[in-house]
């Protein structure tokens, strides 16, 4: 089992982006790259290879699902897990995200102190 070191965070809300960045950097000791849209995320992935991508679900332009599909299509060799963040917490929606190929779903609002462990618990068994 390999530990994750770097994360690409994608969210259109700058505030949330900042909170999750601080949580992952200071609490989780992770390298964090951020993007404020699906398009920007795809652009960053051409030169960065994060260990995990965290995608907001509701974004203007490409939403989380579309971004996930694009990542899989354009970067088939990039084997990193993708985790969704969403404020839609209905069970049916959660299942739909998992079926779409997400490694896990993090509900908003989240406790930033628990965020890095939550992410690791989702991603690290999946990478194994």
């Amino acid at each position: 089992m390999e530990m994750i070191r770097s994360v690409l965070l994608v969210d259109d809300e700058p505030d949330i982006l900042m909170v999750s960045r601080i949580a992952l950097q200071t609490v989780g000791k992770l390298e964090v790259e951020t993007a404020s849209s699906g398009e920007e995320a795809l652009a960053k992935l051409t030169h960065a290879q994060p260990d995990v991508v965290v995608l907001d679900m509701m974004m203007p332009g490409m939403d989380g699902l579309q971004t996930l599909n694009q990542i899989k299509e354009r970067f088939p060799s990039l084997a990193c897990p993708i985790v969704f963040m969403t404020a839609k917490t209905q069970q049916a929606e959660r299942e739909m995200y998992l079926n779409a190929g997400a490694a896990g779903v993090i509900n908003k609002p989240f406790d930033p102190m628990l965020l890095p462990d939550l992410l690791r618990s989702i991603v690290e068994p999946a990478r194994n």
């Binding site: 505030d15 601080i22 949580a23 404020a87 102190m113």
Partner: peptide, 26 residues
């Protein structure tokens, strides 16, 4: 469904910021 999402979004950053402060992360 939209309203609840729209409310959760600002709450996420508020709760997140407060959580970081409270947890001593900064």
């Amino acid at each position: 469904s939209t309203v609840s999402h729209e409310l959760r979004t600002p709450l996420t950053s508020i709760r997140g910021s407060l959580g970081l402060l409270l947890g001593g992360a900064v």
